[in-house]
């Protein structure tokens, strides 16, 4: 309050005093850093030279193909005609009316939900189990991470054998334990096919989540955990109120990766079922590929690929911002 009075009632003839704001020094032509302009120009040139290769790569491998994709989405290119006719938004209008697109999108949504939640839950569970393990920790890390580094094609082929209705291990195993009636043609039964492929993907992804979360758990403040233990917090309470907040940024990063992967899923579905039987496992990625390269509807396939991208961006951006905010708040490992 005193300060306000002083500022609002200055003496009209008062000489400059210590309370008067000090004016900044007048800017002169010389830079404050004292760096010679020749050096600054050289630094700028060097910066441009260093950035140029990366920029060239971004332009060649990202901007140009993206522009190319946009162009093809607005024409009707069948792979032959060097001057495809401009069709405006026709490809986009068609895909919104195409029931197969909606069916594929529904499968994508199932994939995104189950394919994100399951690896997170399994990976976190495994990480918590191995967190306190002193001996053999490396073995578990390698064993659980191994499926993730295997080529998706190999994973798809091997799991295709496991699901095989006549010679597959799964049906044989069920028979051995007296549950033979549960056996089915896993990849050919429309009721199980998507979940069978999804199960394979979850198996391959959980190891990745496990390794990342285990690394994050190593940085958790164990004193807080011990304190909560003394306060009588149960395992779930400790996980929810003490552990998870500390690893939240990493958790969100892993969530972003698995979630965005759910939009662009392609290879494992393509290898295991090709989208069949009769579209039962079709996702947007396989549908786009089929149109572009099997039916020669390259423009339609490109439009679909753009839609996949547009659908994924808001989630990626939102999770990215959330992660950044939590990091700035000082949360996390």
């Amino acid at each position: 309050m005193n300060r306000t009075v002083v500022e609002t009632s200055p003496a009209p003839t008062a000489a400059p005093s210590s309370s008067t704001p000090v004016k900044p020094p007048r800017r002169s032509g010389r830079p404050r850093s004292g760096t010679p302009s020749v050096t600054r120009k050289a630094q700028t040139r060097l910066g441009l030279i260093l950035v140029a290769p990366l920029m060239a790569m971004v332009v060649v491998f990202l901007i140009f193909p993206l522009g190319n994709a946009l162009y093809y989405a607005f024409v009707d290119f069948n792979g032959i005609n060097p001057r495809p006719p401009f069709v405006g938004l026709d490809n986009f209008v068609e895909l919104f009316k195409d029931p197969s697109v909606w069916a594929a999108l529904k499968n994508n949504v199932i994939w995104i939900v189950l394919g994100t939640v399951s690896p997170l839950v399994i990976g976190l569970g495994l990480a918590l189990l191995v967190w306190g393990v002193r001996r053999g920790s490396i073995f578990y890390r390698v064993a659980f991470f191994f499926p993730y580094i295997l080529p998706q094609v190999a994973v798809g082929v091997v799991w295709g054998w496991i699901y095989d209705p006549t010679r597959g291990w799964l049906n044989r195993g069920l028979e051995l334990v007296g549950l033979g009636s549960l056996g089915t043609g896993w990849l050919g039964n429309p009721d199980t096919a998507l979940y069978a492929v999804l199960g394979t993907a979850v198996w391959a992804t959980s190891g990745f989540v496990f390794v990342i979360l285990l690394s994050a758990l190593r940085n958790v403040d164990t004193e807080l955990v011990d304190a909560s233990l003394l306060d009588g917090a149960g395992p779930l309470s400790r996980l929810w109120y003490v552990v998870l907040p500390q690893i939240m940024p990493v958790f969100l990063m892993v969530t972003t990766i698995t979630l965005v992967g759910g939009f662009s899923v392609f290879d494992i579905v393509f290898i295991m079922t090709g989208g069949g039987p009769a579209g039962a496992t079709e996702v947007l990625g396989t549908y786009a590929y089929g149109n572009a390269f099997q039916l020669n509807r390259i423009s339609y396939g490109t439009a679909l690929a753009l839609v996949i991208t547009v659908l994924a961006i808001p989630f990626a951006v939102w999770l990215n911002r959330l992660q950044r905010r939590l990091s700035l708040q000082g949360m996390g490992a």
Binding site: L66, Y72, F77, A305, R324
Partner: peptide
């Protein structure tokens, strides 16, 4: 960060675009 995310997500279209 938005641009980064957008550019990263945009790479998924390259599969098709790169082969056209």
């Amino acid at each position: 960060s938005t641009l980064q995310a957008a550019l990263a997500a945009a790479t998924s279209v390259l599969v098709v675009a790169g082969c056209t």
